[in-house]
Structures are given as structure tokens and as C-alpha cells.
């Protein structure tokens, strides 16, 4: 039996909205330590990794490890029926072919349940090594969203270069060119408004803006985002989801011929 209850149901709604365009389906792997998901987009260019810890839920029980195959478009349809203030409970029997989602309004006067049909999904699991990155940049998630959105209107790819001067995002297209440089800035009093650049060595990599723009759909989940870069490796974009866990995106770089 699997059961996970979260008072702040809007977090689940936001998570699924952040993922559903990148990955159409994937397995929720549940165990006694929490719920994880790893899924690649259909072209194997980017990967989403979600970790929700058992102790981040208001109630969590999982007697048996299970892989629940989810179609995110369908899960999104059901979660749209939940109110933003609702408590959401996920439930499944062992070896179930459905996942039950129960929504309770804040004052308990409306309770609804929906059963989502589960799928059988063969998924490849990629091993992502823990490693030291050449550059790590923490910045307000809204700033990241603005940069990738603005640059997407100019070009298709972005060159991200981290140097001691700061982190520069450059693109070009039919309209012309664009460069946006962010500098280390710890002046704002609120930590979530700061930009912190941790540079071990200069690095420059090119990425498809379409995906970076898509990652920014996770903006409502966290005030800050962390970008990690190393030469010839995928970029790692991470959002901490409060005490519940994190959502991580990896995107393969463009490679010169």
C-alpha cells in the first residue's frame, strides 16, 4: 500500500505543470524513503529528475517499492480539478493499475477522488555522477526565467559563459544579437534575491534555448534556481522545492562538428 498526503496540494499541481511538456510519461518510483521520477524527453536531449522525500509529506506510507507509470498530460487534467488550497492524498494498492488522488478543501466541506489509469513504462535509468562543477550560479528563479524568455525571442541557442566578470548569456538570430551579463550580487537583504557565482574555472557552453525556457516552468516552485556548468557536460538546473525535495533538469550541450 502506498499513501502520501500533502497539505499544500498546489505544490503537486505546479510540479506536474513544470514537467508535462518536457516528458509525456514516466514512472513514479515510490519506496519507504519517498517518491522519485527520472524521465528523458523523447529525443533524449534533456532529463528531468524529481525527488520528493517521505518526511516532506504530511503523511507518507509505502509498504512496497513500486513503479507507477504516469501519463503527465492525464495527471495534469486530474490535478487541474484540485483547488489551490486543497490537501491532496495519493493512494495506491500494491500492484494497482490505478493511482487514486483525493482532494480535500481547506475546511473539509468538499472531498473528491479521481482514479488515474497507470501505464506500464519501460524506462532507461541514467546514472548521473555527483561531481564538482566548474561554475555554479544561484540566482532568483524569476531572473533565470526572464533571461531565457527574452533570449528565446532573439535566437535558438544560447552561449553561457562563466568568467570572473560574471555569467554571460549570448544569442543571435535574424533580429540581431543579445548579451545579458549577471554579476555576483549579495547586496539584496533577502537571500532569494541574491546572485551567487561560485567559479572554479572559466567555462563556456552552448545550449538550445527551447529546453532552458521549458525548465523555467518550474519557477513557481522555488524562489531560486541553481545552474551548474562544466566543460563538455550537460548543464544541471536545480530547483529546491521547500522541504519536500527538488526538481532537477539536465540538458546536453550543443557540440561542435
Amino acid at each position: 500500500m502506498f499513501e502520501a498526503r500533502i497539505t499544500q496540494g498546489s505544490v503537486l499541481k505546479k510540479l506536474v505543470e513544470a514537467l508535462k511538456e518536457l516528458v509525456t510519461e514516466g514512472n513514479f518510483d515510490v519506496s519507504s524513503t519517498g517518491l522519485t521520477l527520472q524521465a528523458m524527453d523523447s529525443s533524449h536531449v534533456c532529463l528531468v529528475s524529481l525527488t520528493l522525500r517521505d518526511d516532506g509529506f504530511d503523511h507518507y506510507r509505502c509498504d512496497r517499492n513500486m513503479a507507477m507509470g504516469i501519463h503527465f498530460g492525464n495527471l495534469s487534467k486530474i490535478l487541474k480539478c484540485a483547488g489551490n488550497e486543497d490537501t491532496i492524498t495519493l493512494k495506491a494498492e500494491d500492484n494497482a493499475d490505478t493511482l487514486t488522488l483525493m482532494f480535500e478543501s481547506a475546511n473539509q466541506d468538499r472531498i473528491s477522488d479521481f482514479d488515474l489509469k497507470l501505464m506500464s513504462i519501460e524506462s532507461e535509468h541514467l546514472g548521473i555522477p555527483d561531481q564538482d562543477y566548474s561554475a555554479e550560479i544561484k540566482m532568483p528563479s524569476a531572473e533565470y526565467q526572464r533571461i531565457v524568455r527574452d533570449l528565446t525571442s532573439i535566437g535558438d541557442t544560447v552561449l553561457i559563459s562563466a568568467t570572473k566578470e560574471g555569467i554571460k548569456f549570448s544569442t543571435s538570430g535574424d533580429v540581431g544579437t543579445a548579451n545579458i551579463t549577471l554579476r555576483h550580487n549579495t547586496t539584496p537583504e533577502k537571500p532569494e534575491e541574491q546572485t551567487i557565482i561560485d567559479l572554479k574555472e572559466p567555462v563556456a557552453l552552448t545550449f538550445a534555448l527551447r529546453y532552458l525556457n521549458n525548465f523555467s516552468k518550474a519557477t513557481p516552485l522555488a524562489p531560486q534556481v541553481k545552474l551548474s556548468l562544466t566543460k563538455d557536460l550537460p548543464i544541471f538546473v536545480e530547483y529546491q522545492v521547500g522541504d519536500l525535495g527538488n526538481v532537477r533538469f539536465f540538458l546536453a550541450p550543443k557540440i561542435d562538428d
Binding site: V45, H125, L126, G127, T157, A208, L233, P234, F250, A252
Partner: peptide
């Protein structure tokens, strides 16, 4: 012109 890399070439399947 740069080509789009695939994640499988950077991370191995476990």
C-alpha cells in the same frame, strides 16, 4: 554549425 548532443552519450544507463 553545432549539433545537439544526446544525454546517453554523457551519462551511462544503469
Amino acid at each position: 554549425k553545432a549539433n545537439q548532443g544526446r544525454l546517453d552519450t554523457f551519462f551511462s544507463v544503469v
